[in-house]
Design a protein around this nucleic acid. Structure first.
Length: 151
DNA sequence: GCCAACGTTGGC
DNA sequence: GCCAACGTTGGC
């Protein structure tokens, strides 16, 4: 089983929103590297760290699971959607999405600053690359982070 | 709001 | 295919 980190802006969708929804579509990914991870590697049952970005307290807030393999993101075909892509077609979809299922909140946010300061997490894509909204998490990183207390 | 990093677009 | 211009991400 693989593990992932998904970024979200909590002003848009927070882990609380995911919890309320139970299962929700993770759509609107419009970056090829992120798309390729979703389309080619994300599998049902994989674990997902949920990361809040572009907000007051940035960091990892909890966990979810991937609930479906990737499928074409319907928003790319919807001319009224901000995620509409005129170059995509049903026969040749360009963008993909998955559904995720809420799992748990950590008792406390794991701040980005703590991640950057943790010797065990120096190799995280989050630390080394930044700008990537779907990224793989190594098994040891997953174990280390999910050993935290839950709410 | 600033700005660094980096991805994408498009002219040539 | 190069690369400048431009747009977006995202921390601070």
């Amino acid at each position: 089983m693989a593990h992932w980190l998904f970024k979200t802006e909590p002003d848009d969708i927070s882990l609380d929103d995911i919890q309320r929804a139970g299962t929700m579509r993770w759509d609107g990914i419009r970056n090829y590297q992120a798309r390729n991870f979703l389309r080619d590697q994300c599998a049902e049952g994989d674990g997902v760290l949920i990361y809040h970005s572009s907000c007051k307290n940035v960091g990892i807030v909890g966990t979810a699971h991937i609930a479906t393999a990737a499928y074409p993101d319907p928003a790319q075909f919807d001319a009224k959607s901000p995620y509409f892509d005129p170059k995509a077609s049903v026969d040749a979809p360009r963008w993909f999405c998955v559904d995720i299922r809420y799992h748990a909140h950590f008792a406390e946010l794991l701040p980005l600053a703590d991640i950057k300061a943790d010797p065990k997490l120096q190799e995280m894509v989050l630390v080394k690359q930044g700008r990537l909204s779907v990224q793989p998490v190594a098994p040891a990183e997953w174990r280390h982070i999910t050993a935290r207390a839950y709410r």
